[in-house]
Amino acid sequence: MTVEKILELKNLQVSFETFGGEVQAVRGVDLTLHKGETLAIVGESGSGKSVTSKAIMGLIESPPGRIKNGEILFEGNNLLKYSKHQIQKVRGKDISMIFQDPMTALNPTMKIGSQIMEGLIKHQEISKHDARKRAIELLALVGIPNPDKRVDEFPHQFSGGMRQRVVIAIALACNPKILIADEPTTALDVTIQAQILDLMRDIQEKMGTSIILITHDLGVVANLAQRVAVMYGGKIIETGTLDEIFYKPKHPYTWGLLSSMPKLHAKTDKLLAIPGTPPDLRKPPKGCPFAPRCPYAMDVCIDHMPQYTASSGSQKTACWLLDERAPKVDPPSTIGVGGEA
């Protein structure tokens, strides 16, 4: 299978000016998204995942935000060099986004039909009549019953799960090449979460969209993603295929993440957590950002950021433990996924 790169981030750095000083939210992120794949970016709150996705959309508000460095190559063109007008033509057409909270992501005073049609009319230059027809099709596609009636309803007449479907319909309106889903299920009940994930998988099969899935929920990742990037402290500390990250993780932070997932057949009732808090990105650490919380940290970790070590064609890990001079450490037994460990 030849894989075509559709999006590539090179050394992306994003900062925010705050009263407390410059917050370096994203500190040199390299990422590749292939055509038709789902890439999950996981990490805890404040690790820079949402900022990365907003940067791709050109939605970083400036000031206070600033893209300091790097390139965002979409089909080979650097989006950061685009004018405001040019980026508006990409947004919603080639790259679109699903937001976290469906309760607030829709304009309360506009019929959902009109909210779907807007993007269509803007990007595809079709008539209102055709746009409306397409909006009804889209509502049907995302599984909303009676779409021809509901197209004229307002957001408050929809439940949370239904609104998230509408948000997805808006994002899909122009058949985007890339769909960025920023925690698409966080605000939903578990049963609705499963439905929305099924819907996203369906859509990807039907339309071949590439998806960037941003989440801190490893269950969602396992459900949807083919490749995973683990972010911590504004950096990607490990990437690999789903299986590699879940079954052969190399980074202690990834171990921690997997250990802290509740397990069905665990012998203890205790929920494992990673002790400590994420680094203060106003004064980013010189070395590995995870070092202060890492049970295996060595002196070198504090002062020097490790380079990536490739352990397979697809897995890369930034950790000194993988250096040949480092002591051999086996992953803890608690990382097992689900009931299989």
Binding site: M57, V90, R91, S96, F99, A105, N107, M110, E118, G119
Partner: peptide
């Protein structure tokens, strides 16, 4: 600052459209 304005921007609407329509 509300989320639906971000949604509107993410659709690729121009600033004027976002202000007047949303």
């Amino acid at each position: 600052q509300s989320d639906y304005i971000t949604t509107a921007e993410a659709k690729g609407l121009t600033t004027m459209q976002v202000i007047f329509k949303h």
